[in-house]
Design a binder for these strands. Sequence first.
DNA 1: CCTACCGATCGGTAGG
DNA 2: CCTACCGATCGGTAGG
Lengths: 198, 198
Amino acid sequence: MDVRAKILHEATRLFAMKGVDGTSLQEISDAVGVRKPSLLYHFPSKEALHSSVLEHLLSRWNESLPRLLKAAAREDRFDAILDETIEFFAADVDRARLLLREALDRPAEMRELLRAHASPWLGIVAESIKKAQHEGSMLKEADPEAYVMQVINLVVGTFAVGPLLQVLVHSRGQHEVDARLVRELKRVARAALVSRRN
Amino acid sequence: MDVRAKILHEATRLFAMKGVDGTSLQEISDAVGVRKPSLLYHFPSKEALHSSVLEHLLSRWNESLPRLLKAAAREDRFDAILDETIEFFAADVDRARLLLREALDRPAEMRELLRAHASPWLGIVAESIKKAQHEGSMLKEADPEAYVMQVINLVVGTFAVGPLLQVLVHSRGQHEVDARLVRELKRVARAALVSRRN
DNA sequence: CCTACCGATCGGTAGG
DNA sequence: CCTACCGATCGGTAGG
């Protein structure tokens, strides 16, 4: 792994864990194993590094988009899309944490970022739900747009603060997200859209 | 309002908005209208101020507990408890933001805090769901503990990042939490627990 | 509740 | 990619 990639990796880890404001360039440099000015050679400023971290996250998301669109074309599209979304965040909990922090710290910028990168396919999913409602295969009481946003809220929250939610749901691992929480997340999302088992 | 209360209020606002690490004592002092050393007379350190802010939030929660327990005794306990919980966070979105930031920044401390202050009544709610499952009035597929945690996840997320979730659900207000999101939150929570309307 | 001041750390630059 | 260094700001203290 070259230095630039290592900087990006450690910055992502630390930003997700302690926030951008809570992380100093010195800490990142130490984690990478270079001096601070070397880091500033690869990324001209902390702000530039921050932007690069977010762009990297978005590019990962774009990578998984084809798989998600393929899932949306399947018969059981609902479960397939949900599974793909869950898998994206499960693959690296830093993604959910970073996204949630960004939403809290810079709501206006995050809003624009979501509008540009997520809105299109969110709209597609919402439309597909509306269609299923007309066909009678999904509950007509559901508000498709609000439903999609709440499912994302649920998924991101589960992976970002999952280990903490296990106060009550105490199973083995303290640091990995509990399987029960993920199972219940899927069940809740599904039960709110279709009235009965399968 | 005396100085101490004003400091607590402005600190809460700024901590919720920009995080503890992202807020300087100088900013808080400026917002209150005193000099920094004056602030440090009322609260001996930033850490002490931070603790006081959290304690104040918890005492508000304890204040609303009686109402919540009264709600749990009603016939329609499920909707009543959910409504009371939603109302608590709706009354001041800083509460949800502060809680979520704390969960991200200090998961271990937050865990202990939840275990001490929330775990008891979370257990009561979970037990009440189990009872209803045995009586057949609630879906037996639900995992009561995981369900309760996911509903909290949903409520806190809705109020903490709600204005942002309105990328798709675009109604009027940009800064208040959309009524559609709250309605859908209630519907999802309910549909995941009872199979049919009322 | 204030003025005056402290060492430490911040993001960032000069120059090689 | 490094050493050396910068002004600004950080949380906090002395003393009144």
